[in-house]
Amino acid sequence: MITLENLSKSYGKLQVLNNISAQFNAGQVVSIIGPNGSGKTTMIKCLLGMVLPDSGRIMVDGAPVIKQWEYRSKIGYMPQISRFPENMKVEQLFKMMRDIRKSNKVLDEELIGQYNIPAMFQKSLGSLSGGNKQKVSAALACLFNTEILVLDEPTAGLDPLSSEILKTKILKEKNKGKLILISSHIMSEIDEVADDIFCLVDGNFRFYQSIESIKEITQEARLGKAIAKMMAV
């Protein structure tokens, strides 16, 4: 579904992505991990067209997408930090996004309901707490029932209950055959929802394996320890 070919990106002298290639398929939940500054967000942003790679190709459903924009209708995205136009009301934001997407698919309003977002419809986005903004952001990402979901540290800032709701939702979407990319640092969470782990260190590809095989190779039951072992190799 998504193919990365020899993706490279540098900011000045700093090489953020170095010749990254990967293949992500439908029905997969891939967790992109790596230490801070390893290039996770840059890779996601490249995928979304927010950052233009210096070289390499990105294909979505077989078509190159760099400098294109129509393909993004296939992607639901939840950014790391959600800041919205401060004076806009929550309801308006949803209206606007629906307006922009013009999606004729059935809208997925499950999260809107579960997070009780209608209760904050009349609040302005500027007045929302960080957690509530994340909820809005998550609900928006899922709203259009897209084939691909890209979630950048989705549970950071969410209370445990809301995190649970989101995790359940991710698994549910996975079962619908969607491709879900998650960047996260929380290993227990990854263990719960992800199938495969894509690891980046300092912009270099480290490994891309299923959780099972990682556990097998390292002989560790806990994913955290397993990853630590993998990194140490």
């Binding site: 959600s82 800041r83 919205f84």
Partner: peptide
Amino acid sequence: YNSTEFIELLVSQPINR
């Protein structure tokens, strides 16, 4: 500068930059 995030939000949507 204040709309950076809003612009990011829009850029991740299927809209021409």
